[in-house]
Amino acid sequence: MMSHSRTRRLLALLAALAATLSLAAGCGGREAQTGQEAKQINIGYIAWDEDIAVTYLYKELLERRGYTVNATELEAGPIYAGLAQGNPDLFLDGWLPSTHEDYWKQYGPQLEDLGVWYDQATLNIAVPNYMTDVNSIADLKGKGAELGGTVTGIDPGAGLSRTTKEALPAYGLQGEFTLQTSSTTAMLAALQKATDERKPIVVTLWHPHWAYARYPIKDLQDPLGAMGAAEQIHAIGRKGFSQDFPEVTDMVKKFRLTDQQLASLENEINSAAKGQEQAAAKKWADANPDVIRSFAG
């Protein structure tokens, strides 16, 4: 998910221009040859771990059914603008009601909401499982010295960073803890080092994320709701998608992943070498036949 701040309206207004440039290379303008009869589909995806994971899972499953699948990575704005123009056909990572709110307000009437496949997209403060006396954000009070007074975060401009800065005072932690921002990569490296050495650490994280499958960590309870409510991840099609792709629509509408299933899929793909994402998706699908049967027959 989100190493970026929440989408701003200006970005949404500029998306159409960006789409004109980006989509000219392969995404933008309805392509008559796509559809179930032609067995061809264009999927747009953003560079967020869960979208990469599910896009390559769908690519693998649809190619097994004889489809030609063109998967193209773009920013969110150009994808929404492209969907409104008719290309790509499908986007599997629509964060609503908040993160992609501006895009949905602008383009939603021209799109098809194909349903929610994940409903626990949350922002979190997390610690290792072995910190057994810390189970709520409130439990951090009085532990600043033990933890170096630091909450290890991601980019300073991320929405998660802003939310965490607002949450610390809600729990009376503003004088005891400081959010240390850097990057997602740096945060994950610090988390791995701490858990390898079984040392205490507090980090900012979000669901869905593969770190929950790789490291022994837990989210801290947030009884005050200071980190915000859960969002939903929607599959979104261009106008006419369900009519042109009835078989894929049936798959998408049945598609559901639990937090554990999605984390394990992300972890499988994140652990693969660059360019081997689909091979990793195939490996995960073969190891989870019951999950695949639940939506893909």
Rank of each mutant, 00 (worst) to 15 (best):
G148V: 06
G149S: 06
K141R: 14
T163M: 10
T152P: 01
P169Y: 09
T150F: 02
L160P: 01
K165Q: 15
V134H: 03
K141P: 02
P169L: 04
G159D: 10
T163E: 11
T150C: 09
G149L: 01
G153N: 12
S136E: 07
S136A: 05
D155I: 04
L140I: 10
L160N: 09
T163C: 06
G157D: 11
G157K: 12
V134E: 00
A158F: 12
L140G: 06
D139A: 01
I137Q: 03
T164W: 07
A158S: 15
K141S: 14
L168I: 08
G149V: 04
E146P: 00
V134F: 04
T164R: 05
G157W: 06
I154S: 11
V151Y: 11
R162I: 13
G148K: 06
S161E: 03
G153R: 07
T150W: 03
V151R: 05
L168T: 04
K141L: 11
R162K: 12
G159I: 05
E146L: 13
L147F: 11
A145D: 14
S136C: 01
E146T: 07
G144D: 07
A158W: 12
A167C: 13
S136L: 00
G144T: 04
G144C: 06
T164P: 00
L160C: 02
S161P: 00
